[in-house]
Design a protein around this nucleic acid. Structure first.
Lengths: 177, 177
DNA sequence: ACGGTATGCTTGAGTAGTCAAGGAGGTAGC
DNA sequence: GCTACCTCCTTGACTACTCAAGCATACCGT
């Protein structure tokens, strides 16, 4: 049932701010967002689990870890970065520890914290996963269909919507127009 | 394979985003989508469950039923419309039947199918939920921040991404079929 | 020094989905 | 009118989270 979209979509790189069309149904847009995300997650999961045996969530977790100084983060910070609860992080980390991509490390001056640390193996595997994930993303936003401005616009709109960014960037929330 | 010394970052553009629009990192955009959706779902769930005791998934299911002729659909069609598996629909329907919003109905000429039908109560409750959901959506896409063009653009971009639309209907103001 | 509170993490129970297996019913070919 | 397959639906086992409770540790005011 995936036929070409019947709706008049922005096929050219022009905006038309003069026309003031009726505000599209926000509820409909929100539901579309949910749908789109489900499809996207499914595609990433398929690629990543097929090639590396991890889910998109696993990958995202590892990615944050890989990005942190020393490949090391407190669970609580990981939770915040991922938009999960602490308990979600505990559970998500468990299988990654079991397969040796992440190790648990005690903190020197605070016995409460248990760092999650990327192992050398974890770092290697992450690099491979990153390659796969980039391919999946490129495939999703195929360059012949998605222009740089489409992509940028989507990213900006989503950021406005969705809590914090997937990575801590100093990039300000700039207005579109 | 990729370079052996990774310090993986999903965003690799540090150049001026205004000069010659460098294509933003597709992976980063995809991850933002996931994040945004999580936040959106959380807000809808909070509103809907607080006021009506249903989740966004429940609401979406009822909404599709409400749009169907006779408030009635085969489970298999519901699954397709919602982007779920048949088993997901079975499980999602169960609590709605238990609380009397949906009833199960046998098909006259095919004993395999079990229609899901909106009860009169279900239809009433759905109308109330719809009001709440619209409010949540309006709140999310606050009119002072989201112009009609932003909304339309987001919708179009998401549709391009996400399989089929949430509902093949433009947005009747308040009435259900 | 000590009691109260705040923080970091884990765990048990519950929710929302997946997939794979399987039963019951419909539809052909011959 | 059998045989074979195909469709609709449910179920059991699993994954990936959630919240609430609870334990251990740290910090702060007196």
């Amino acid at each position: 049932m995936t036929s070409p979209q019947p709706d008049p979509k922005p096929d050219a790189h022009h905006s038309d701010p003069r026309a003031d069309p009726p505000r599209p149904d926000p509820l409909d847009t929100a539901l579309r967002l949910v749908r789109a995300q489900a499809a996207v997650v499914k595609q990433f999961d398929a690629s990543l689990s097929g090639l590396h045996g991890v889910s998109l969530s696993d990958f995202t977790l590892l990615l944050h870890l890989g990005h942190a100084p020393g490949g090391r983060m407190r669970r609580v910070d990981l939770a915040e970065a991922l938009g999960l609860t602490a308990s979600g992080v505990t559970r998500g980390l468990a299988p990654l520890e079991r397969i040796g991509l992440v190790s648990r490390e005690a903190a020197a001056r605070d016995a409460r914290v248990a760092y999650a640390t990327l192992t050398p193996t974890g770092r290697e595997r992450l690099a491979e996963m990153l390659y796969t994930a980039r391919q999946a993303a490129d495939d999703l936003f195929a360059a012949d269909q998605w222009g740089a401005d489409d992509l940028g616009r989507l990213g900006a709109l989503l950021t406005r919507l969705g809590g914090t960014a997937p990575d801590q960037r100093p990039a300000p929330t700039h207005r579109l127009g």
